[in-house]
Design a protein around this nucleic acid. Structure first.
Lengths: 199, 199
DNA sequence: TTACTAATTTTACAGTGTTAAATTATTTAC
DNA sequence: GTAAATAATTTAACACTGTAAAATTAGTAA
């Protein structure tokens, strides 16, 4: 009666095979190309058996999200444990986070939904209509730089943009966080960066 | 022969009607629910005529993205023109950006792809596995606060997270920006926030 | 009224996620 | 070993999706 266990092991195996197949497809063709039938093809079954293992497509995505968060947690803890100084711990952790986002890009996209259609916008939009063109002027002036396309201006612009876009992302998703706190973070961050421009 | 013009005007009208219908559907049911047939229903036509006005669904999305960027540009310029002081200009502009993201949430989601599946994660993930749990400890210690769930710790955590997530988002999308510059921004930002913890 | 052109719809195709029924394979009981 | 019962897997089907070609209707010009 050990066959029962062997079969259970096999079932557990196809459970992870499904996840792996999904991950592979996404790595090759992107999230949009992921379909139940493609997963089935990859694990050499037909589509309906997937529903024996996962309730639906969303459940698969959720499982992958979970896996992604666990992986990220590992990397961050690993990085933290390499240092004793608190400041160094923080820097190492955030660097690990950063690296995870690019090394496991597919996971990060799933976890935080980074797709964006703003890539080609620069060419399509009328000149002066994208946020950069509008903000770069004042930033350059404050820095005492004449050319708004100077790298130092770009850097500062992206610093602004990052924190604001990041905050917005959190807020659109995690509606829990109090609006008052966020406005405070935003104002602090903006004035902080703005102050740093004059140095 | 003025009927030619009237007809052209009508055609132009249904062109915007299509865009408006799409926007309405998204506002009611989200981006995922947007379909050609639903748009057609709303403008009281059948689906194929939409292709007389837009090449495909993506073209509609692109047009809406464009519209979103123009709207954002207006709001930012409006805000800037209300001030003469450069610092105030910047703050007003970014605040306008912030407000746009929430007032025109659908546009912002389309422009910057903020969907995210990390909402429910807190409950599903094993305790201590999400980035907050990992980072909050050192942050609290550095701030001399014993409770990692203290609001002040949260605020600082989100400041970190915002800028890092924002930077990653840009980098995943705009592969143009040099990696060296970004690492510099990241390190600067992290050490800047870290320094501010001790105050 | 007839011929032609433009506008619109019907039909169709290939794809999606998902469910129910039919089929095949495997295990159990005799 | 054969028959019955159960599990594993597939086929068929449904309601969608975006999109293209063909058929139809409406409107204009001769």
């Amino acid at each position: 009666m050990g066959s029962k266990e062997r079969i259970n092991r096999l079932k557990e195996q196809t459970r992870v095979n499904i996840l792996d197949a999904a991950h592979d497809i996404v790595k090759d063709e992107g999230w949009q190309a992921l379909s139940m039938r493609k997963i089935a093809d990859k694990i050499e079954y037909t589509a309906p058996i997937i529903y024996e293992y996962y309730a639906n497509k969303e459940a698969i995505l959720l499982e992958l999200t979970k896996k992604g968060f666990m992986l990220l947690a590992c990397r961050m803890q690993e990085a933290r444990n390499k240092h004793t100084d608190l400041g160094e711990q923080l820097e190492a952790m955030w660097l690990a986070y950063w690296n995870f986002a690019f090394e496991e890009k597919e996971y990060y996209q799933l976890m935080f939904g980074v797709e964006m259609n703003c890539c080609i916008m620069d060419e399509i939009l009328p000149p002066g209509s994208n946020p950069f063109d509008i903000a770069a002027g004042p930033i350059a002036q404050l820095m005492g730089i004449s050319d708004p396309d100077d790298d130092r201006v770009c850097t500062k612009y992206y610093t602004y943009w990052s924190i604001i876009h990041g905050l917005i992302s959190i807020n659109i998703v995690r509606k829990g966080t109090s609006d008052e706190i966020n406005r405070q973070i935003l104002k602090d961050a903006i004035s902080g960066i703005t102050r740093s421009l004059s140095n």
